[in-house]
Design a protein around this nucleic acid. Structure first.
Lengths: 327, 327
DNA sequence: TGTGCCTTGTCAAGGTAGTGTCCAGGTATT
DNA sequence: AATACCTGGACACTACCTTGACAAGGCACA
């Protein structure tokens, strides 16, 4: 891989770090002073310069504190330990909440994890062989065997990531990548159709903003919500703000979700976000997710949007929203 | 991995433990004070710090109290004893079912049962409305949500029964019954296709004997086996003995299953059964199931067939057979 | 069938610990 | 000059702590 120095190279000023981590400059300084959470180098004038690694670390810490860890207790852990903790907590918090607290035996957990990996491997094999029939069957089998949440987080997300990496390093061809994308989209579309609700249910509007064309993330969000019992209006990629707003008001949406996979132009996008937020009723949260969302966390949150970086968090939010309306 | 130090390391503040166990901080403190259920270490400031093991223990306790055990009685048991008790009380219900988690709190159990009933009702509604699209979607949704076993036993079996009754008492028309049968068959066929295995796996041959035309039972058996990881050769209804036998030998079947929904002529059928049994290798069990199977249990068993009257029993048998071959 | 005791979850009050936020006065950066 | 950032200290709010009490449900016993 490329040099460590790259990642350790200190060059980010505090405001940028704030944007990416969602921590305010105040908090960044307080954490550093009190817990020595990172030690950014300084410019000649004494201003903080953070490295890539620092940011990574801070992000992890923010996630963990969001999930209930005390900053004072985890501040001194290594990045590896943090990652490990993170995986534990996101895994468990979710099951505990969803099913009112079922702790399955460790043995069952391991079996389940192994099954998930096996499905992922099978999906990748099918992709490499360009066997769309097999890929499709594998995905459907995984969905039925694992249920929607684990299917999305365990299989779809992982497989897509792996394919993405493979594509970047040329071990996956364009044809393979296209085929996989198509089949994944079809399968997620099928799930969305299958979970279409008839009765009354809170409605979510999902879209990707103008200029964004990668819709798989948005589809995952849509399916996730549908499986939670929400009525979902999926508007697909590259949607102008005006249309998003009119759709939201027309369907009396209870929430709006936007998926952001990469950042083309920060400013533009933030303007869009602000405009969208302004056009929505107060009680309708504007949820921002996707790979690129954390990069602009703070400024996005400043527009009034809610930034999430995992599907479990998203599901939890949906449950809270749905629960708010009942009593 | 250094389990001991790792798991005993006290790190988690009370809010996190509350999140993961589903107990409120109030209860956590009350249990500790009254029963000394765990003894978290304290921070310098006196705040509780729980270890991984503490959490594990608390989750077990929570599960058991949910199942009706009194906290005062089980508080002092060791983690091992708790686990054992846990398996006893919830245990035999079902081993490590992959889907939707294990049978946990009665609340979750009730929720699950309610979900199953809801799907069944939805399927019946769709049937009465002759809405095949909705019926299909409902069934697929049920399959993905519940997993194959509960889908088959909870939804398909019950719905078919109800439709059967309705048909008998004329509240379900022939058209409705036909439509439903078609959609159920299609859905089960889809599942069978989805679970088609590629690798090596024990093979099961499924058929309905000559004179029997109701194939849904056989399909359920086939799907059930497929979801257990078996390779299934589904031969459909009304199959002559000779063909069944040749299929079994040709595919080197590890077992043969026959579904019997109604009895037209006992004698004939028993002769068929005897003939089939005689034509199969010793080690290949001939499994007889279906609504009408129990009626002729004794004479059927005399021919050397295995008579089962539930899908769970069938699954257990398959697991035993598969396990026999490995070691 | 009612009565009283026991178990257990929940709450209140009053105080401490841990964390986020802010201020003021000064320095860097653009 | 206008921002953006620095430091050290102060402040305020949330999360936790302990003790004690209360209410609802379960259970035994009259």
């Amino acid at each position: 891989m490329n040099d460590l120095s790259e990642h350790q190279l200190p060059r980010f000023p505090v405001r940028l770090v704030a944007l990416r981590t969602g921590l305010t400059p105040h908090v960044l300084r307080a954490w550093e002073r009190r817990y020595g959470v990172v030690t950014p180098t300084r410019s000649e004038g004494g201003q903080r310069l953070y490295s890539h690694l620092d940011i990574e670390r801070l992000r992890r810490l923010r996630r963990l504190t969001d999930h209930g860890h005390a900053i004072g207790r985890i501040a001194s852990l290594s990045l590896g330990a943090l990652t490990q903790l993170d995986e534990e907590s996101s895994g468990h918090a979710e099951t505990a909440r969803l099913h009112g607290g079922d702790s399955s035996s460790p043995a069952a957990d391991r079996l389940r994890a192994e099954t998930i990996r096996e499905f992922t491997r099978a999906a990748l094999r099918a992709t490499r062989r360009l066997d769309s029939t097999d890929l499709q069957a594998t995905l459907e089998r995984a969905a039925v065997t694992l249920g929607v949440p684990d299917f999305l987080e365990g299989v779809v997300a992982t497989a897509l990531e792996d394919i993405g990496h493979g594509w970047a390093e040329q071990s996956v061809s364009v044809a393979q990548e296209h085929m996989a994308t198509t089949v994944f989209r079809r399968t997620l579309g099928w799930l969305l159709r299958v979970y279409e609700v008839s009765g009354p249910a809170p409605r979510l509007v999902v879209a990707t903003p103008p200029g964004q064309v990668h819709e798989l993330g948005a589809l995952m969000v849509a399916v996730s919500a549908a499986a939670e019992g929400w009525a979902v209006t999926y508007l697909g990629p590259d949607l102008p703000v005006a249309d998003l707003l009119s759709a939201a008001s027309q369907t009396e949406a209870r929430a709006v979700a936007i998926s952001l996979v990469y950042l083309s132009d920060d400013r533009d996008f933030l303007a869009t976000l602000r405009e969208t937020r302004a056009g929505l009723p107060e009680r309708v949260p504007l949820i921002l997710g996707g790979a690129a969302a954390p990069e602009i966390r703070l400024s996005a949150e400043n527009t009034g949007a809610v930034v999430l970086d995992s599907l479990p968090d998203f599901r939890t939010l949906l449950q809270r929203l749905a629960a708010e309306d009942v009593p």
